[in-house]
Design a binder for these strands. Sequence first.
DNA 1: TTGTTTTTGAATGAATTTAATCGTTTTTGA
DNA 2: TCAAAAACGATTAAATTCATTCAAAAACAA
Lengths: 249, 249
Amino acid sequence: MLTNERHEFILNMLAEKQTIKIQDVVDATAASESTIRRDLTELENQQKLERVFGGAVLPDRNLMEQSVSDKSTQHLQEKIRLAKFAATFVQDGDSVYLDAGTTTFQMIPFLKDKDITVVTNGLTHVDSLNEHGITTYLTGGLMKSRTGALVGAQTVQSLQNYRFDRCFLGVNGIHEEYGYTTPDPEEAAVKRLASSLSRKAYVLADHSKYNKVSFAKIMDLAAAVMVVDRMPDDLLAILEKKTTVKVES
Amino acid sequence: MLTNERHEFILNMLAEKQTIKIQDVVDATAASESTIRRDLTELENQQKLERVFGGAVLPDRNLMEQSVSDKSTQHLQEKIRLAKFAATFVQDGDSVYLDAGTTTFQMIPFLKDKDITVVTNGLTHVDSLNEHGITTYLTGGLMKSRTGALVGAQTVQSLQNYRFDRCFLGVNGIHEEYGYTTPDPEEAAVKRLASSLSRKAYVLADHSKYNKVSFAKIMDLAAAVMVVDRMPDDLLAILEKKTTVKVES
DNA sequence: TTGTTTTTGAATGAATTTAATCGTTTTTGA
DNA sequence: TCAAAAACGATTAAATTCATTCAAAAACAA
């Protein structure tokens, strides 16, 4: 059995069973214990797994994967559907700003085959963007560990160097009077600037955001096209007086 | 069996089994081992397959692999020792630039209890910095998927906003005459600028870098303090005429 | 046929991977 | 807490694979 095969085998075994014992791997591969040990240290160096006494476990997931599988991230399927819908607005040749956040994150797989350049302030986005072969620029700035977003004066300044065809933002609240809002004023500032640098701005919001108001105002409703999933007709009628609303489904 | 036929045969076999062993091909074709080896070398040059020890695999499984391909634990341990040593130069209150790269990455755990602010262009660094509770700014810029570094004009501009007390750089070559060198000119430009913005610059290099010259020059030896592990006395004598050398051990 | 070029196969020593050993560290369970 | 058992890293020897070289065989051209 070739080294690569063994490595693949070990990783598959690990993916299937979550944790593996060295002896089990030895028995399953007919290689010596030394060899398996060497394999495990090598795979650990590649961050493909994490060694523990007696075997190995799956590595720590990154921030976005954690939050995606987190119970607090509700409506995942709906977010994915919404993200897919939003991605249809992106065209070849576009330069796109992708805001940090879980919904925009879900757009990435659907951008795969488009010939675009992406700028993002979402640290958690870059690995995925990279995996999907998308040319990616990151804004500078201070890392907010909780959300994995870059914010602050440096982020604002970085952004000034770009102009976008389209910009996709996540928000926490949508309200007829108070506009788009989000909890963190610094993130709000970044979102506001990004949209102002963009020919066309889109706000992605699932129905749980309707008529909510969060602390920091980003901008008025009219400043962006609203991309939403199902929405009550009466609310839709009200919002459509303020801005364009694209309803998925 | 004609050469072309053999090549076809090998590629089919590979397409079917994903991984092939040289001996299996020899048995299946009744050609000699030498011949099969020649075939594989040739096919690899045509990028039709990738050779591995003992056989061959399909090419470009994913190009992420190559970036983290260092498998020797030996090497890694030495890097950790060197990184630990380098970290002793950091003092409370410092603002520190941490270059992208594996050696500087290993410094992070040793910076844990220091009261510092870190700026880095290394995407791979941020999670670890975050885990260790270190205030971190990221430069902006284009993401190079191979090295996980941010480079380019935006990175340069981001950097201009900072001034550092100390800056820690990795390099690929150290040479008395040609100075510090690295393969990528864009990364070289970033390193050069970072060191010029720093009160004190340090270059981390293990012994495998001595007397090597890479494509892009970063700067002269005198522009940074050299932090190295063991070093032959005669070479040390030469380099110490050019700059300060801190030897770990 | 004869001479030339190309391909093949075998041999060699170097390089790499694997297996086994041994002293040390960690875990387990009484 | 202590001792036995299991797992560990490091070292070393064995086995396997590799690149190189060179001569024989085959293909080719004149």
